[in-house]
């Protein structure tokens, strides 16, 4: 018996609509299940770290998965003391923020010219910058150390800020150039008609349009600098200038490691990175309408 053909037209529309919205709902559900699963995988290490940061080392030895029987907030005070986080947090902040600021400013400026202009040796210079991404940093530890000695840089924040800028520039320029190249050429042309100079075009047009990619490189550079260990270890000798990653290594002895206080320290060290990400996250996804209109 034919039971599908004789449906009135409106009803068919309705059915199709409900079917459509049903499908949409199912799809949405699938997406959410998928995203939730992904979130669990991503959050597990952090929650695990957070939970264990309240345990005693004994309790951690007994079981790494059990819920803490008593919550030792004292671990945080201990971690703060052992890792000298009071001092090192401000050092890391000063070094990290200044290095990121200069990396992105210098990098964005250089990228603007590399991406939007055409001049002699342009490709060579661009490639020269990109080479920097192919260098394993541990190979440069000793030469850099000797170089900084010769320049008498060791007893200042510059001993880390400058190498962080130098090693942050390649990836910064690489990413920014690729983004800045993708804007339409008409942008400058209309600006020039309006009488804008190249600097004005950079500040008021290209830079605002590049905000998503600027946010990207700020995040990448900040994380790299915040977690950087080898340069900080070798290039800094003055205990007053050390950074957070060095402090966090204080929990590791020759034969033993105090994991629970280390986790308390690591939890605290993670907070600034998350704050930076949250502050910049909106720039990442805020479609810069300026680009869309003029492009």
């Amino acid at each position: 018996m034919p039971h599908t053909i004789t449906v009135p037209p409106e009803k068919a529309m309705l059915e199709r609509d409900t079917r459509h919205s049903m499908r949409k709902k199912i799809l949405k559900l699938v997406v959410y299940i998928f995203l939730t699963a992904y979130s669990i995988v991503n959050l597990f290490p952090i929650l695990w770290m957070f939970m264990n940061s309240f345990k005693s080392d004994d309790a951690f030895s007994q079981s790494v998965l059990a819920w803490p029987k008593q919550w030792l907030f004292a671990n945080y005070a201990e971690a703060w003391r052992v890792a000298k986080l009071g001092l090192y947090f401000s050092n890391s902040m000063i070094i990290g923020v200044l290095a990121v600021l200069f990396t992105v400013l210098l990098g964005a400026f250089a990228s603007y010219f590399l991406a939007r202009f055409r001049f002699k040796h342009q490709t060579k210079i661009y490639n020269y910058f990109v080479f920097g991404m192919l260098i394993p940093i541990h190979a440069t530890l000793v030469p850099l150390f000797i170089l900084e000695n010769k320049l008498h840089m060791q007893n200042s924040y510059l001993s880390l800020i400058v190498p962080y800028i130098a090693f942050g520039l390649p990836i910064t320029i690489f990413i920014l150039v690729s983004f800045m190249k993708s804007f339409s050429k008409d942008i400058e042309e209309s600006a020039i008609m309006d009488g804008c100079g190249p600097l004005r075009i950079f500040w008021s047009i290209i830079l605002p349009m590049s905000m998503p990619s600027i946010a990207t490189v700020v995040i990448i550079n900040f994380i790299n600098n915040w977690n950087e260990f080898s340069f900080a270890l070798v290039l800094v000798s003055n205990p007053d200038l050390k950074t957070v990653p060095l402090g966090l290594s204080n929990f590791v002895g020759q034969y033993t490691t105090s994991y629970t206080t280390q986790m308390a320290g690591l939890t605290m060290a993670l907070i600034p990175v998350i704050i930076v990400f949250l502050c910049l996250e909106s720039y990442l996804v805020k479609g810069m309408t300026a680009g869309a209109v003029k492009g």
């Binding site: 210098l106 400026f109 250089a110 210079i125 080479f131 850099l144 800028i165 130098a166 520039l169 320029i173």
Partner: peptide
């Protein structure tokens, strides 16, 4: 500026 810092401290 980028070229100088990068050359001196990376390359």
């Amino acid at each position: 500026p980028s070229l100088i810092v990068y050359t001196l401290f990376c390359m």
